[in-house]
């Protein structure tokens, strides 16, 4: 198991380096990138919207009850928005992309591997990294921040609607505190985080797919492995990125 994990990390690292090398040399199939963005992005919109909206609602509910004890309900917007921008937006979008897109990419590439399609690419002199990983990584790196922006927006807006309807907090008060505590720096870090998560998801999914040995069972295992690895890495990276930018931002 440890050997498999080390192999996976090593191969993922090599694939990442090769992918950036191809991107830096402009060897990008833009048509395929656009196709990947449309198929992965549009398919994830609904689930990301629903998830983010309900996270915003439940967060508002929990915070309001706590803040009401101290007479500080007017800070609901500040807490909901900073939680959404700094943590929840990137995490929700990454989980949606990993669960919906990462597993599908892994299964697609895994079944290509088991049916010798990857071998066919190699024989024809087409590097699978350039042909399969580059467009998927770029699409994921673009679509995850976009979904993150949407998730964050809906999380804040759903909180605002609940705060107004259940706790009589005006929209203006809510939005004033949103503006008070959040800066451009926070939004930039949010987008950067989402972009890193998108790259991680694509590399893990494609590398796991390329490592498939065997038939349908191995393809299923690869899809599951992709989701598990992505969740672990997303939460670990999230902590380190947050702690780094938290320190840098306050200094």
């Amino acid at each position: 198991m440890y050997r498999s994990a080390v192999e996976q990390i090593g191969e993922g690292g090599i694939n990442l380096i090769k992918t950036f090398w191809y991107i830096s040399r402009g060897k990008i199939n833009y048509e395929e990138v656009a196709r990947q963005i449309v198929t992965t992005g549009i398919g994830s919109l609904f689930i990301a919207s629903i998830t983010a909206s309900f996270v915003g609602l439940v967060l508002t509910l929990q915070i309001s009850n706590q803040l009401r004890q101290f007479g500080a309900e007017h800070f609901i917007g500040a807490i909901v928005s900073s939680s959404a921008i700094r943590e929840l937006g990137p995490i929700i979008s990454a989980i949606v992309v990993s669960g919906r897109v990462g597993s599908a990419v892994s299964a697609e590439i895994g079944s290509m591997k088991s049916s010798e399609q990857i071998d066919a690419l190699i024989v024809f002199g087409i590097d699978p990294v350039r042909y399969l990983i580059v467009p998927r990584l770029l699409a994921s790196a673009i679509i995850t921040p976009l979904l993150c922006s949407l998730s964050t927006f809906l999380c804040i807006m759903s909180g605002m609607v609940l705060a107004n309807s259940a706790f009589n907090l005006s929209f203006d008060t809510y939005l004033d505190t949103v503006r008070l505590v959040n800066t451009t720096y926070d939004v930039s870090v949010m987008l950067l985080k989402a972009c890193i998560f998108g790259i991680t998801i694509a590399i893990v999914a494609t590398t796991t797919g390329l490592q498939v040995r065997g038939g349908a069972e191995a393809v299923g295992e690869a899809a599951t492995k992709t989701v598990v690895w992505n969740y672990i890495l997303i939460f670990i990276f999230n902590y380190f990125i947050s702690s780094y930018f938290f320190r840098v931002g306050y200094e």
């Binding site: 071998d119 024809f124 087409i126």
Partner: peptide, 27 residues
């Protein structure tokens, strides 16, 4: 060098034309 695979290994998401043209387009 060309290779005809045991399981054919054609790309299922592509038309036959695209399958045959791929190596020329990419290399």
């Amino acid at each position: 060098l060309g290779m005809a695979f045991q399981k054919s290994a054609l790309f299922n998401s592509m038309t036959i034309w695209k399958n045959v043209a791929l190596a020329l387009e990419e290399t």
